[in-house]
Simulated assay, not measured.
Amino acid sequence: MHNPPRLLLVDDVAENLVLLEAIFTPEGYATRSAGTGADALRIARAEVPDLVLLDVLMPGQDGFAVCRALRADAATRFIPVIMVTALNELEDRIQGLEAGADDFISKPFSDDLLLAKVRSLLKLKQSRDELEALKTDFANMIVHDLRMPTHAILGLAELLREDSAGGDARRMLELIITSARKIDQQITDFLEASRLEAGRLKLQLRAEDVVALARRAMDQARPGGRARQIRLELDAPSELVARVDGDRLGHVFLNLIQNAMKFSPAGGTVTVRIGPVGDRIEVTVDDEGPGIPETDAAALFEKYIQGERRTGGVGLGLFICKTIVEAHGGRIRAENRPGGGARFRFELPLQPPVQS
């Protein structure tokens, strides 16, 4: 939680916003005001306040719609929301609860009651934040401790494979090595996601050939598709240079290509296309699989989300891709191809923004 706590005040009547600021500012709260639902969502996503005080009756996007949008976004999902309303009907309160409101206060209200409700929800938020931090620290410790034995299993199994004459023993060792590598990748993804969430992503920007990064990722991914005869094709100029973090962007390419291979049928083709579009680079990765179910589309890039497009992982790969692309000043999305299959598309500026 911020210090001092940040409150987002949302009301289409300017006089009401002035009154609310007069209540909270002397109590030591930092406030931001929004006069429309669209402005409220923009500020909430950019600044992630500690609490939202939300008027229900607003033209255009009313408080119910704003609350639903806050709850649908991973960045704002857990922000406490108090709805300020002149409505007293039980049906309206039920609608607010269904939209995701944490509490209500009816107009006219006393300053003391409003402040008490805000303090109560902020205490709950602080407790949740502390619990989440404790959980994350504990999980990081466990994952770090798992890495060493996993590497030991992998190393010993590879040594035994070299000494193995073949037959069932060699096949079992191959299974052990494959499984250990999968666990090691999941550990890597978890630690990477934790670093990204904690804001510890520092890009090492330099001039890189983005096409060469894609080729390298395809070479890394190609052995995994041989058994099912998955073809990898690249449609790109011979060279396209941009200022990027080559290691991080290579991770994005590898993740998207491997993801596409998993959903492609035997004998299918995964196509990577790269090209300049104005002052940006556009990349698409196409597969010939079943496409993306509508129920999965909205949450596809969130943590631990797999939906019907299950990959057998822990649901971190696309979250990591999104975070890396956005750190470069780009954007990423997924869509269904007109001819069938899925398409993952991301854009990057040729010259990324300066990091703070």
Score class of each variant (00 low, 15 high):
V48C: 07
R42C: 05
P26M: 01
N16W: 12
L97T: 05
P26Y: 02
Q95C: 08
I94Y: 09
L87V: 02
D62Y: 08
D92V: 02
N16Q: 15
F64L: 14
N16Y: 12
G96H: 14
I79N: 00
E21I: 04
R68L: 11
D92L: 04
V66P: 02
L90A: 14
N16R: 11
L53E: 04
A75S: 13
I82T: 13
G60L: 09
R93P: 04
D73G: 11
A34T: 15
I43E: 03
E27R: 15
P49H: 07
A75G: 03
D73K: 10
S33P: 00
N16G: 11
A46P: 00
M83G: 02
A86K: 02
G96T: 14
T25W: 03
L54Y: 04
P80W: 12
A74P: 04
A34F: 15
N88K: 06
V48E: 11
A30P: 00
Y29T: 10
E91A: 14
L17I: 12
A69K: 05
A75T: 12
N16M: 15
G35N: 08
R77H: 09
A86S: 11
Q61W: 08
I82Y: 12
E47L: 05
V56F: 06
A46D: 12
G63M: 08
A22Y: 01
A69S: 07
I23V: 15
P26F: 01
G63Q: 05
T31M: 04
L20E: 06
T36W: 08
M83L: 14
C67F: 14
